[in-house]
Design a protein around this nucleic acid. Sequence first.
DNA 1: ATATTGAACGATTTGTTGATTGTTCAGGCC
DNA 2: GGCCTGAACAATCAACAAATCGTTCAATAT
Lengths: 196, 196
Amino acid sequence: MSDEVCERIIEAAEERFTHYGYGKTTMAELARDCDMSSGNLYRFFPSKLDIAEEICRRASIQTADALTAILDSPGMSAAERLKEFLFQDLRTTFHALEKNHRIVEMAQLITAERPEFHNEGLKRERDVLARILSMGREAGEFEVDDPDFTAEMIQAATLKFSYPQLFSRLSLEKLERELDGVYQLIVRGLVRSATA
Amino acid sequence: MSDEVCERIIEAAEERFTHYGYGKTTMAELARDCDMSSGNLYRFFPSKLDIAEEICRRASIQTADALTAILDSPGMSAAERLKEFLFQDLRTTFHALEKNHRIVEMAQLITAERPEFHNEGLKRERDVLARILSMGREAGEFEVDDPDFTAEMIQAATLKFSYPQLFSRLSLEKLERELDGVYQLIVRGLVRSATA
DNA sequence: ATATTGAACGATTTGTTGATTGTTCAGGCC
DNA sequence: GGCCTGAACAATCAACAAATCGTTCAATAT
């Protein structure tokens, strides 16, 4: 079956890419890992970059799935969910950078070469964000006209906490303190103002 | 006088750096422009990079000064001043990138090599921002506890519109539309809530 | 017919050499 | 004595060669 071979290739590539880096692993090595010729890899993936893209896509989906869990977590206000969303997202990328910088540099390579890929990942997370906002609106907690648009703006405002290249110098503590400040700035504009 | 010689050097360097680029101009050329030996330049600047840093510092000060004018502009609400601040800042960097990408690439080089330089420029603008917030608070328009802190957060939230590397793909129109959205998100959290 | 190979090809990377350039400083100039 | 020069030095860059690698495809195997 073709799918199983794809899995095998992905598996071998993930091992080598994360261990030795994208640039340092050759198609010949991947082929050998999968007991096939290098040429045969091209029946399953159009190029080496596409293998890396698929690996990064899966990581992105996993991150988004973990964020989706916030939607079902019981006993949280919408504001708390929003805060949890932002902090979890920051921590995920930060630890990914810390533990395995190889996957981050792969993501950057793909982003540079394939701009739509990054937007795709952004959209995945934005959809979760929009649902948090919708939940807040329906609960009478948030005042939001267009959840999708507002989600886009929140992403723009918290971009600093999503780009590893930007916060390579800063510690997680500093980043969290700053993110908390930005969160408060945002949330104050979202909550229905209490009667004065 | 030593200062006048410094000016002469800066002048020559600015001409060459913006015209041919930082990397393509040599210290020997600068020395020739100033009728001196290359070794003598080092009596006035510790290194080539320091000359570039001084040029960028001046550009940064000029940008900040232009932003300061917003403080004295009559007949504007604090919210309008904030909006004007953000938009003027975006337009300035955008047009700098468009018209003379050389000075932007110089700024990036210095930022990479001298992290404190960038913070210095950020602080210059942040001080103006903090004063806008203070004005808004004193006029009873904004509700802000700590203008300096809030200014820092606004800078973090609008970082996307200050880094040329990040918006190289986007058009000015798109950026302005997005900045408007972020501005609205922020300003809703700042204004004293009207009685419901 | 289909699946697979591996040699061939062009693009990219790597390694190396020579030239260029930023920086220093011993010496001459005023 | 301070000011300035320009040769000397080390670091960086440019250019070229060799090697490696991603990708293709005619040939082979199943």
